[in-house]
Simulated scan of single mutants.
Amino acid sequence: MFKFKFLLWVIAQLLKKSAKKNPACAEYIKGKDLVFQIQTQSGSGRHYTVKDGKVKSSSGLTEEPTFTLTFKDPQVAMNILTAKDKKAFMLGIQNKDLVISGNFAEVMWFQGLTKFLKPGKK
């Protein structure tokens, strides 16, 4: 569980840094106003707010996220979120190890945001 929570925190730090230092990321999030969360079925997770060109994050869940990524358990989440194979996300959905709820258009937007998670990625 600790590794999962740490990974969610790292995601927050990478997004914050990219929003500040990477002009392409700043442009990508410009004008966005949404809250999303990543969690396990048991309810452990973190939520992220994208607003006013900034990314903020808090531990725990929020009541009305724009969308939620819910993983079967922390280990499954770690495997999917850290996979080098881009198909891992889709396989997780097919296997019901990952359930997505909420605004699917914003989920697609989020998938574009993930390219800024790699350190040093432009």
Rank of each mutant, 00 (worst) to 15 (best):
F4P: 04
K5M: 08
L7P: 00
W9H: 08
V10T: 13
I11K: 09
A12V: 05
Q13V: 08
Q13D: 14
L14M: 14
L15T: 06
K17Q: 15
S18H: 15
A19E: 15
K21W: 15
K21P: 10
K21V: 14
N22Y: 13
A24W: 09
A26S: 15
Y28W: 04
I29L: 13
K32C: 05
L34K: 03
L34Q: 04
V35E: 10
I38R: 13
I38Q: 11
I38G: 14
T40W: 13
Q41D: 07
Q41P: 00
S42C: 01
S42R: 07
G45K: 08
H47I: 01
T49D: 08
D52S: 12
G53K: 10
V55Q: 10
S58I: 04
S58M: 08
S58Y: 07
S58D: 11
S59E: 09
S59N: 10
L61C: 00
E64H: 09
P65A: 01
P65S: 02
P65E: 02
T66C: 06
F67Q: 06
L69E: 11
F71V: 05
F71A: 04
K72A: 07
D73G: 04
P74K: 04
V76M: 02
A77G: 10
N79M: 05
L81T: 01
L81A: 01
T82P: 01
A83E: 06
A83M: 04
A83Q: 05
D85N: 14
D85M: 01
K86T: 14
A88E: 12
A88L: 14
F89V: 04
F89L: 07
L91G: 14
G92L: 07
I93T: 06
N95I: 04
K96M: 02
V99E: 12
V99Y: 01
G102I: 00
A105W: 08
E106T: 07
M108G: 02
Q111F: 01
T114E: 03
F116P: 08
K118F: 12
G120F: 13
K121R: 11
